[in-house]
Design a binder for these strands. Structure first.
Lengths: 343, 343
DNA sequence: ATGAAAGCGCTAACAT
DNA sequence: ATGTTAGCGCTTTCAT
């Protein structure tokens, strides 16, 4: 019984001698090398022998020879965040479809420079990296740059990073906000991932633009920073509720997890959703449906983002492409029980 | 600028010539080979050169030479289920700590034989496999057996599988049930993963045992199969609510996702938690806290399971161990708002 | 259309 | 204590 994957398995030599040809011929057939012709008869015979022996190429040998690992890495800061699980699902699918494996690297939050660097230095195990970060100035990013392999950033645009697949979050925000405004809401709070250093009202233009388009003003008292966790969302919501002045009638947390936290805070305060407060967010998923009441959301093509990122990355690696640069549009608004017309 | 990970990087030869020694000496130093002595002076010099050149070993070459890939695979059926994300977090940590990479394989549900087999046949990229399945008779399992590498099954015990890390779910169930019984509940429903073919009352003994220990009877009308999804939990809860006869005063869904679904169904029916119905489940996580009301749960060491599984697997691969066979005990009961004393 | 042969970077006998 | 050397299994010129 073999101890490991690479022990005592048939090699090209076995297939070659079974088929009575040279290894190079077998290689040509099995690796689908089209530049050289092999007679149909020989090809058949080789294929039959390979199948009969259950031949599986030794990837380490091939890697050594062709200087490629055929694996990609994906670095995620939170594995138990639906946005990242869905990204991974899409990325894995794309990788598999192209003969690549996906290696996961969990970047622990607050792991610090040394750790993140060390981790990604392992990048010599991969031909390319999919990088996601919650913090734009993250060390992860520097590490990825150090990693001397092409990388594509997902769901984030960062100064100096050329390759990225982004989500048109401004448009999604606009859709969410227009929904609330259309329901008659005027005092709409916003839980933002982080504040824009210049405007101070949240990173994404959608919130502000929608207000302005409706002739409303941006009230800083209605905006708080939630980050990207449930706890962050709950804290930000509590913060807004604790501020003096009239309470908002609706809230737009930017992320699903923040919205989940906001719902907690609202329940704590005995504020009924949607009667007293409408809630809408961006990014749909099973949790959104499972909330009470179920959340109205703007669907986000997260899996697609992972898939497109991988495909772009592979094209980058193959030199079939110089740059990966796409923006995915939001999918539709799914209206559920968390939003209602302002009475 | 290098196109990929393995192009134009310093090799052992570079380090050797920089240090003025032979490659074999460098190899001995850098691979920490303790069986052969190298003078401290030479060692220092080699280490310095390696560092200065930023030498990183070529893993493909090493793999080819030693017939090991230094990667492990983890096959999961649902990536967006907290139980699996947490397992992966633990597994990744364990792998990393031992110089292994973790490769993820997402087994799509209903992927069918051919697909699952084909996927795991790729197992020649890994030295071992962590296998998780929701369906005991899964083809995944057969595939893993075909995969000629050691594998450890997580969170499930299956006939004929020697290596597994299990969770003492019977004891966890007992803790959950005792909590409900202690609160005065007598009519307690159970949403089970699947039914036990012999008893017909759910796979796990904890539910039945707790009832019997309290002098209560098992009422089949209070048991339904939920599977392991939110929807399954919601459907099973609806099913029980639709049955004639007195309604239960508490429900014990076996999994967090099923509990989430059950909460949905209860809300739909206007049944208040915990006033009209107490809910307790096994496996804690952020969602449990985010529910309304927050769920009382028995905490489950899921990350630990991934970690222990990986460590055991590596020991298996190294031949330091013949079998991996452990059962993890449940952690504590966390009482939150979803359970209350029966009035 | 097929074969011969070199060599990717590394490790582990075996020599010295 | 360190050097020499033979491959691991594969792809890819270069011959034929």
């Amino acid at each position: 019984m073999p101890r490991n994957a690479l022990t005592s398995r048939p090699t090209l030599i076995d297939v070659a001698s079974a088929a009575g040809v040279d290894v190079s011929t077998v290689s040509r057939v099995l690796s689908g090398n089209t530049s050289q012709r092999v007679s149909d008869e020989t090809r058949e015979r080789i294929l039959a022998c390979a199948k009969q022996l259950d031949y599986q190429p030794n990837i380490a040998a091939r890697s050594l020879r062709v200087s490629r690992t055929f694996s990609l890495g994906i670095a995620v800061p939170q594995l138990d965040n639906p946005v990242f699980s869905q990204m991974i699902i899409g990325a894995e699918r794309g990788a598999r479809a192209n003969g690549y494996s996906l290696l996961i690297a969990h970047i622990e939050e607050g792991g610090g420079d040394a750790d993140a660097y060390a981790r990604l230095a392992r990048a010599n195990r991969v031909d390319g990296l999919l990088v996601t970060t919650l913090d734009d100035n993250s060390v992860v990013l520097k590490a990825a740059k150090q990693a001397k392999v092409p990388f594509v950033m997902l769901n984030r645009q960062v100064q100096g990073v050329r390759n990225s697949i982004r989500f048109d979050v401004a448009r999604a925000a606009r859709m969410a906000m227009d929904h609330l405004i259309g329901l008659g809401h005027r005092r709409i709070a916003h839980l933002s991932g982080q504040l824009n250093p210049s405007t101070g009202i949240g990173r994404f233009a959608g919130y502000r633009d929608a207000l302005l388009a409706a002739g409303l003003e941006v009230d800083p008292a209605l905006v708080a920073v939630s980050g990207y966790t449930i706890k962050g969302g709950a804290d930000a919501m509590r913060e807004i509720l604790s501020r003096p002045g009239p309470r908002p009638t609706a809230v737009f947390p930017l992320t699903l997890l923040a919205a989940t936290g906001a719902m907690m805070a609202l329940h704590e305060h005995g504020i009924r959703v949607p009667q007293d407060m409408s809630v809408v967010t961006v990014h749909d998923g099973p949790i959104a449906e499972a909330m009470f009441p179920p959340l109205t959301t703007v669907r986000m093509p997260v899996e697609q983002m992972g898939y497109d990122g991988v495909v772009g990355l592979i094209e980058l690696i193959r030199g079939e492409r110089k740059v990966v640069d796409a923006t995915l549009a939001p999918l539709e608004l799914v209206v559920r029980g968390s939003t209602a017309r302002l009475l």
